[in-house]
């Protein structure tokens, strides 16, 4: 039979074993992202505590939180979509981090470039939004409406930054972008070549992470943490997991765009932690902006800086 011959030894010799490596990468990348994300969460809480002259949580606090939440004996669900929302929130990021090249692993970065990544990270948000909607709590809906508005605000400078970088290097492929930046040392890093865009990107990062002054959509005292109002147990735990991925994705993306990605794991993690520390440090000294103020701010300063940056890039 035909199909048998295809599986014969000749065929086997032709089988490319690189796919095994790829599978390994696809398994490892989310795992690493999660672990690094836990570290980032810890760092954020530590920074906050230090700035408030507190000791802060112990080393494994983020992990304990997640374990505790999953181990809750009663779990309040508001329906299938509530649950699927959390699944999408986690799953979307698990998929998205495979598009982010890290030292030694490119994952699927070549199959979908920057734009695909950008839109892939919206899937978790959409999932979360659906889940929150199913909770049937207006606080949650208000939170989502604010979160989406915030996305509208920070995505404008974000896409300007992405355009600038992609146009500068003439590619949407993150692997290529990183290679191009690493080619000439620090001088070819994005932040050196396009300082204005890097600044605008930092602005956008602050909004993307939803840190103060841009955390109107959780606003605990006002709308009872908004989207998370009905999230308890493993639902909240899922969101904690998602937060790890989110921090990781934001940090790595910025590093890949402006700081030349990672030459090795040491410098890579260092850059990621430094980049993520900046918004957190800024956050702790700010109160909260109202939604419209946030939108106004994002559409004004980072956008203008970004456009100026593009003007430099295009000339």
């Amino acid at each position: 039979m035909d199909w048998l011959s295809a599986v014969s030894l000749d065929g086997l010799a032709a089988v490319d074993f690189r796919w095994l490596g790829l599978v390994l990468e696809l398994i490892l990348m989310p795992l690493i992202a999660f672990v690094v994300g836990l570290g980032l969460v810890l760092m954020l809480r530590k920074i906050a505590a230090r700035l408030q002259r507190r000791v802060g949580p112990p080393l494994l606090q983020p992990l304990w939180d997640i374990i505790k939440l999953h181990a809750k004996e009663t779990q309040t669900s508001h329906g299938l979509i509530h649950e699927i929302g959390i699944v999408m929130a986690i799953g979307g990021y698990v998929a998205a981090v495979t598009l982010l090249p890290v030292p030694g692993m490119n994952g699927l970065a070549a199959q979908g470039g920057l734009i695909a990544l950008l839109y892939m990270t919206m899937i978790p948000s959409l999932g979360l939004a659906l889940g929150v909607g199913q909770c049937a709590n207006p606080n949650g809906s208000i939170g989502i409406s604010r979160a989406l508005t915030a996305m509208l605000a920070y995505d404008v400078p974000m896409v300007i930054v992405i355009f600038g970088v992609a146009f500068h290097f003439g590619s949407l492929n993150l692997v290529y972008l990183i290679a191009a930046q690493q080619a000439g040392g620090i001088a070819t890093w994005g932040i050196v070549q396009m300082p204005l865009l890097a600044l605008a990107g930092l602005f956008a990062l602050q909004g993307m992470l939803g840190k103060q002054p841009f955390e109107i959509y959780v606003a605990p005292a006002e709308i009872a943490t908004g989207p998370m109002v009905e999230m308890g147990g493993k639902f909240l735990g899922g969101l904690f997991v998602m937060q790890c991925f989110q921090l990781y994705t934001a940090g790595v993306l910025y590093v890949a765009l402006f700081l030349g990605g990672g030459e090795n794991w040491l410098t890579f993690l260092f850059k990621v932690f430094v980049v993520t520390a900046i918004p957190m440090t800024i956050a702790m000294v700010f109160p909260r902006y109202r939604t419209e103020d946030m939108v106004r701010l994002f559409w004004k300063w980072p956008t203008m800086i970004g456009l100026l940056g593009i003007a430099f890039v295009m000339n």
Binding site: H70, A71, Q75, S77, V87, G91, A95, T98
Partner: peptide
Amino acid sequence: ILMAGFGVGALVFYGFGGRSRR
């Protein structure tokens, strides 16, 4: 990869932790 991610998410969500009640 997205579907695989959803699978992982489902595993994390449904595999670990107590039963949920509507």
